[in-house]
């Protein structure tokens, strides 16, 4: 990779920074190449010791979030996080908690329905054994149909439950990430 390739790649990965930032960064690297050349290094050598432009761009992107932060760093590093925690707490309490309980309740209810649909087949069978004289074939078929649909509901609700758990754990992880502020480099 030569100088142009390097700068081109760097520019590509920095494309969402402001043009002012991009210009300054590219200038820094132009200067670096100039200095390296004056020491008799080839562009390839300079590029090799600079490292991956993608990684450099990633590091540069993470500096962006410091821009709006005022100079006194020790106290205010904590305060926005406390704000996030309080905000998150009330958001979860007011907006997320109710619907979550509702959805969880619905899912539980459907499980119970599916289970009872299947279970009633055994009860029907039991009844047939004890009181065969008062048992109609129609009831048996109705019972089997119900049990069959119970099994189908099982399949569907199992899928839905897994999806709900996945979404829920992702949401929890997202909350934890927000609170920890992991994106800060």
């Amino acid at each position: 990779m030569n100088k142009l390739d390097f700068l081109e790649e760097l520019r590509y990965y920095l494309r969402n920074l402001s043009s002012q930032d991009q210009k300054e960064i590219i200038q820094d690297f132009e200067e670096h190449f100039e200095m390296g050349r004056s020491e008799g290094k080839t562009d390839e050598e300079i590029v090799r010791s600079l490292g991956s432009p993608q990684q450099i761009a990633k590091d540069l992107q993470s500096t962006q979030q410091y821009e709006k932060v005022p100079a006194n760093h020790s106290a205010q590093n904590q305060s926005p996080r406390i704000g996030i925690i309080i905000g998150l707490f009330f958001f979860n309490l007011i907006i997320v908690l109710g619907p979550s309980i509702g959805i969880a309740g619905t899912i539980l209810g459907i499980w119970v329905v599916a289970f009872s649909f299947v279970a009633q087949l055994f009860i029907a069978g039991f009844q047939w054994i004890i009181h065969p004289e008062s048992f109609y074939l129609f009831e048996l078929f109705a019972s089997i149909t119900l049990a069959g649909s119970g099994l189908l509901i099982f399949i569907v609700i199992n899928y839905v439950t897994n999806a709900a758990i996945r979404i829920f754990s992702k949401y929890i992880a997202f909350n934890v990430r927000l609170v920890k502020g992991e994106d800060r480099a």
Binding site: F29, H32, G51, P53, D59, E67
Partner: peptide, 24 residues
């Protein structure tokens, strides 16, 4: 720095920019 520590030279520029933006 690279005389003493083994790092890719390019990684110093982001550090410089960060401390510049933070007013250090």
């Amino acid at each position: 720095i690279t005389d003493k520590i083994e790092i890719s030279e390019g990684s110093v520029y982001p550090v410089l920019r960060r401390i510049l933006k933070q007013g250090y």
